[in-house]
Measured scan of single mutants.
Amino acid sequence: MSIQHFRVALIPFFAAFCLPVFAHPETLVKVKDAEDQLGARVGYIELDLNSGKILESFRPEERFPMMSTFKVLLCGAVLSRVDAGQEQLGRRIHYSQNDLVEYSPVTEKHLTDGMTVRELCSAAITMSDNTAANLLLTTIGGPKELTAFLHNMGDHVTRLDRWEPELNEAIPNDERDTTMPAAMATTLRKLLTGELLTLASRQQLIDWMEADKVAGPLLRSALPAGWFIADKSGAGERGSRGIIAALGPDGKPSRIVVIYTTGSQATMDERNRQIAEIGASLIKHW
């Protein structure tokens, strides 16, 4: 067993022997301040990774656009098919120029040779490549099948209805392509620590998230040296922004954090800054 596999296998073990965790309302004060600064709703939840206990939450059962955070769930569904012998990570998928959609920095470079399922998941999570996500959605049967996968996990809230990039439209009061912070946090925890996926697939999923290259201005910008984070960000229309993450000190994750916002007129930089400040408060009061 590799060191990384050992780390993920012992996530519940280490967490069980940690000192009790206590909620700190100071972080919620910052979440509410972010709402004021952005002029928009902000949803927040913080779960203990081992027990699933909610440590703090704000608007945990209000719907927010998922945006690209759905790509972690998508690759979880792909990995479940791999575990069941219905898919192979090494299978190569070929596609054409007509398949390319807006923001496809990886797939646009491989029109000639195609990409493997493993490479597509890596591109979808680490670079948020939209064509990679659409190609992977095709392998599982489309958005409705991802929703069905989530329902089978016990998540009857999260739903995907459309493809990239239309799913980022974020129309107010439109339930399409949305989740709730509580539902997303619980589902992410199941994917990373539950028995739904094999140990190898859980490790692969967290490795992809740990290698995320496009979430630097968010929670990662607030992390002290030595902290662990595996995350996936999302951005959408109407001032929408979000991030889902597993993080913790001492090089291992111990909490799940989900943050979503929508309806702001603020710039992307300002949305990023507010999420980073929430992260800084979380870490300060850990």
Rank of each mutant, 00 (worst) to 15 (best):
K32E: 11
S240L: 02
D155H: 02
E169F: 13
D177T: 02
A133Y: 00
K144W: 11
K284C: 07
E277Q: 07
V157I: 12
V82H: 11
A246D: 03
N152Q: 14
I275T: 04
A215D: 00
T198I: 06
R59I: 02
I259Q: 01
A124E: 01
R202W: 04
I275K: 02
T27E: 02
E166S: 13
L247Y: 04
L191T: 06
A276I: 09
K190H: 15
V214K: 07
G141D: 12
E87Y: 15
K71R: 01
N168T: 13
A280R: 13
E46I: 14
S264A: 13
A170V: 12
I171K: 14
L150F: 15
N98A: 07
A77S: 11
R241S: 14
L137A: 12
G43W: 01
A182M: 09
E26F: 15
A123Q: 04
E56C: 06
A225P: 10
P165L: 06
D33M: 07
K252V: 11
R159K: 10
T69D: 00
A225L: 07
G141K: 15
G142V: 02
G43L: 00
R59H: 15
N130H: 02
Q274R: 10
D33P: 00
D177R: 01
R159H: 07
A34E: 03
F58R: 14
E210D: 15
G85M: 07
W227N: 00
H151Y: 09
L89R: 04
I140C: 13
S104T: 11
D174T: 05
V29M: 14
D83P: 02
A77K: 05
A183P: 09
T261F: 12
H156E: 06
A245T: 12
T126S: 07
M153P: 01
G263V: 05
R59W: 04
L38C: 07
L188Y: 07
I206Q: 07
S240C: 09
D83E: 09
K190Q: 15
R91H: 08
I125W: 00
P25N: 11
M268G: 11
R255P: 01
T107F: 02
V106G: 15
G234T: 01
T69M: 03
R255C: 05
L73D: 04
V101Q: 06
R176L: 09
D250K: 06
C75E: 03
G194I: 05
P249H: 09
R176P: 03
H24S: 09
R63H: 08
A34G: 12
A200D: 13
G248P: 01
I206W: 07
M66Q: 06
S254T: 08
E102K: 08
G154F: 04
P172L: 14
R91Q: 15
L192N: 02
T178N: 03
N272M: 03
K30P: 02
T262D: 12
A123T: 06
D33A: 07
R238A: 11
L146E: 02
K71D: 00
C121T: 03
L111N: 15
L135I: 11
G236L: 02
G85R: 08
A132Y: 00
Q204F: 10
R176T: 11
G226K: 07
A280H: 14
A84F: 10
F70P: 01
A225C: 10
L120S: 04
D161Q: 06
T69R: 00
I244G: 01
H156D: 08
D99G: 09
S128T: 01
R241Q: 05
T186D: 15
L192S: 05
D48G: 06
R271I: 06
I243L: 11
I140S: 08
E210F: 12
L282G: 04
I140H: 04
H285P: 02
T112V: 13
R41Q: 06
S240M: 04
T178D: 03
A225E: 15
S240W: 02
F228K: 06
E164N: 02
V157L: 08
A280W: 15
R220S: 04
F58C: 15
K30A: 08
Y103E: 04
P60C: 15
H151F: 06
G236R: 02
I54P: 15
A266D: 11
G248C: 01
R176Q: 10
R271A: 13
H110W: 14
C75W: 03
T267F: 10
S122E: 13
S201V: 04
N130V: 01
E166T: 11
Q204S: 14
V258N: 01
N98L: 08
Q97W: 09
L167F: 02
W163L: 08
T27C: 06
Q203M: 06
I278L: 14
G239K: 00
V257P: 00
I283N: 04
S104D: 03
V82I: 12
A235T: 07
G234P: 00
G43C: 03
I243H: 02
E237K: 12
T261Q: 13
R273G: 12
A211L: 10
E169Y: 07
V29N: 10
H24Q: 08
L79P: 01
A182Y: 09
S233M: 00
H110F: 12
A211F: 15
S254Y: 06
N152Y: 12
Q88M: 14
R241V: 04
S122Y: 13
K284V: 12
M115K: 04
L223Q: 05
K284W: 10
R41V: 14
N173R: 09
L135A: 14
R92S: 08
E35W: 01
L196Y: 10
T267D: 11
H156V: 09
A276R: 11
V72R: 02
M268S: 12
E164T: 00
L205R: 01
K30W: 05
G236C: 04
V258C: 06
L188K: 00
L100F: 09
T262W: 08
S264T: 12
E270V: 10
D113S: 12
M184E: 01
S254A: 09
V117M: 12
Y95L: 08
T179G: 01
Q203F: 15
Q97N: 11
E56W: 05
N98W: 08
V82C: 13
E164I: 00
Q265Y: 10
R118N: 12
I275S: 01
P217C: 14
V82W: 09
G141L: 11
A211C: 09
R81M: 06
L55K: 13
G90W: 10
H24W: 08
D231H: 05
V101A: 11
P172S: 09
S96G: 11
P217S: 14
F228W: 07
F70Y: 13
D212S: 12
N173E: 08
Q203P: 01
A215F: 02
E119I: 02
L111C: 07
E195I: 05
T107E: 01
R220T: 03
A132I: 01
K109I: 06
E46N: 15
W163F: 07
V117N: 04
Y44K: 00
F149T: 13
M115Q: 08
L223G: 04
S57L: 09
E119T: 05
G43R: 00
Q37W: 08
V78Q: 03
G216A: 12
C121V: 04
Q97L: 10
L47P: 01
R118S: 13
E87H: 05
P65A: 12
V117Q: 04
S281K: 15
S104K: 03
K252N: 15
E61Q: 11
M66L: 08
L100D: 02
G226Y: 15
W208T: 03
R273S: 13
V82K: 11
L150S: 14
T139E: 15
G226C: 07
V78I: 15
L199T: 13
E270A: 15
I278V: 14
E108F: 15
L196Q: 07
D269K: 06
P217N: 12
L111K: 07
L74C: 05
T147S: 07
A77C: 07
D174F: 03
Q86E: 07
A245C: 13
D33H: 07
D212E: 04
G226H: 08
E108P: 15
S96P: 11
L55E: 06
I93P: 03
A185P: 00
P143N: 05
D129L: 01
A246H: 05
T193F: 10
Y103P: 08
V117L: 14
G52A: 13
K284Y: 11
I243V: 08
L137Y: 09
